[in-house]
Design a protein around this nucleic acid. Structure first.
Length: 482
RNA sequence: CGCGGGGUAGAGCAACGGUAGCUCGUCAGGCUCAUAACCUGAAGAUUGUCGGUUCGAUUCCGGCCCCCGCAACCA
């Protein structure tokens, strides 16, 4: 039986439509999943939606719709990303409002509680009367609400359950020590190590259900619901069957050595520290790797926001340029781990240069000669795979997909250059045999490029492979110039 | 001294102790198989700043300036 591999994205929070940052995460995780499939692994790929919590509850109220109805609508939009972004159809889509997940979250709570890592404590929240909202310290400016600076904040005491995060400092540091590639890239790893080394505070994991009913009920305490993070993180194990589907959990969590998690840099703490401590508290093994993406910013590195009007809708781009165009840009042009600015101008420029003029045009020129001169690839040269387990292993030591894409485009450039140098279209008139041999080699190389592209641009890869197999010119350009 | 990232040709990025590369854009030439695509060549950077180490620094060390995130729950 093939070796199992488990990869997941974070579950995006459904308080807004899908945005380009999550599209990037999903596409990258999909590329890694596809790489493993091609490398012969048995792959479980997980994504879904995080649907509980105050923000969702409020948003639904604002729009005067039933909360469940509201999250159903958004969950569907996230689900629609899967075909739009060319994500494997076999992907598992979990919703934190699924009954199975809620049961798992409750079981997880019980387990952690039984192990002595959950306790009740009075907790004071800061409340701005002006906003009629609770405020976190990070929202305050000099201890005051920036919107109502003249009003004093009220302190409201409430009892919440807390998770004994502080008990896991040493064990987390040991985990990091023993797994030198636990967090990728290394500068994020350093960041979380330093954070944990500085000392940890227990954090609240429940809310009063009178104030916020939209969550998983705390087992045995009808007055409280789980804080959204606590419930959402459990999805990584509930998705693979924890606790009751023992075989499945064993295969995907134990035999794989844990999950590979993709997330944004704002999720570093939650994924690389809090979640790992939660797993320890439930006597479960840790994740395998946490890969931290940078953010996509607007022009000039500005934060993307609706108010600035510089947001990018991934579905709009796909509608205009196609799925693989977006995949290409996200995988190749956006830096692997740093923040990357995204503008439609840059996108279009890169599309024209590398897809239309690059692989698209190359395919046309080679196939034109091949079809005209009647050259087809031998069965032997129509290999079916390029990726080996060893190669896949090498790629995931760094998760730098952009580098791998660049190598493919180097090969494309070399082929263009080779055509120019050997000029088979001239040679055909004086030395047809030699010209045909040249074109055969080109066809073979193009086929290999198609195979190399498979995890990244699956649609394009298959199209090129089929054109070569059927010895046909593309009916229309693979990527129309824009 | 809260934590972290960054300042390199017009733009976006790379390199990392040995005379600074790539992509886009610009200019000149070539080719005609191809999606006015492709190939070649050229112009364009005192690598934020000051100082140190060194035979030699963009690369190592220190000071300073500027940008951007995070600062306990927003991909």
């Amino acid at each position: 039986m093939a070796q199992p591999f488990y990869i997941t994205t974070t579950l995006p929070y459904v308080n807004a439509d899908p945005h380009i940052g999550f599209a990037m995460e999903l596409i990258r995780a999909d590329a890694v999943a596809r790489l493993h499939v091609l490398g012969g692994y048995d792959v479980f790929f997980n994504t879904g939606t995080d649907e509980h919590g105050l923000k969702v509850y409020r948003k639904a109220k604002e729009q005067h719709v039933d909360t469940q109805e509201y999250v159903d609508g958004l969950a569907q939009k996230y689900k629609d990303l899967i075909p739009a972004l060319g994500v494997r159809r076999e992907v598992n889509f979990i919703r934190t409002t699924d009954a199975r997940h809620k049961q798992a979250a409750a079981a997880f709570w019980d387990k952690v509680k039984a192990n002595g890592f959950i306790y009740k404590k009075s907790y004071s929240v800061k409340y701005c009367v002006g906003c009629e909202l609770e405020k976190t310290d990070s929202e305050l400016v000099e201890g005051r609400c920036p919107l109502h600076p003249v009003q004093e904040l009220e302190l409201i005491n409430e009892e919440n359950y807390f998770f004994k995060f502080s008990a896991f400092q040493q064990r987390l540091l040991d985990l990091y020590e023993q797994n030198p590639r636990f967090v990728v890239p290394d500068f994020r790893f350093n960041e979380i190590k330093a954070f944990v080394a500085r000392g940890l505070e227990d954090f609240s994991i429940s809310r009063l259900s009178t104030k916020m009913p939209w969550g998983v009920p705390v087992p045995g305490d009808p007055d409280q619901v789980m804080y959204v993070w606590f419930d959402a993180l459990v999805n990584y194990i509930s998705a693979v069957g924890w606790p009751e589907v023992v075989d499945s959990f064993d295969r995907w969590w134990q035999q794989t050595g844990g999950v590979v998690q993709y997330c944004g840099k704002d999720n570093l703490r939650q994924q690389a520290a809090m979640w790992q401590a939660m797993l320890m508290a439930a006597d479960l093994p840790p994740s395998k790797t946490v890969v931290i993406n940078g953010f996509i910013t607007g022009d000039g590195g500005l934060k993307m926001s609706k108010s600035l009007g510089n947001t990018i809708d991934p579905l709009e781009l796909v509608g205009e340029y196609g799925t693989d165009a977006l995949r290409y840009y996200v995988l190749r042009e956006l830096t692997a781990f740093e923040d990357s600015p995204f503008t439609t101008e840059k996108f279009k420029e890169s599309y024209n240069a590398n897809l239309a003029n690059g692989i698209g045009n190359l395919t046309s020129r080679i196939l034109k000669m091949a079809t005209t001169y009647g050259i087809t690839l031998s069965e032997e040269d129509k290999k079916t795979s390029y990726y080996t387990p060893a190669l896949v292993g090498e790629i995931v030591t760094t998760y730098d997909l952009s580098k791998k894409m660049s190598e493919i485009w180097q090969k494309i450039a070399m082929l263009d250059e080779h055509i120019q140098r050997t000029e088979p279209f001239k040679k055909i008139k004086v030395d047809p045999e030699a010209a045909k041999k040249d074109v055969y080699d080109m066809l073979k190389n193009l086929f290999e490029i198609a195979l190399m592209l498979e995890p990244y641009l699956p649609e394009t890869s298959v199209t090129i492979q089929n054109l070569i197999k059927e010895n046909k010119m593309p009916e229309k350009p693979l990527f129309m110039r824009k």
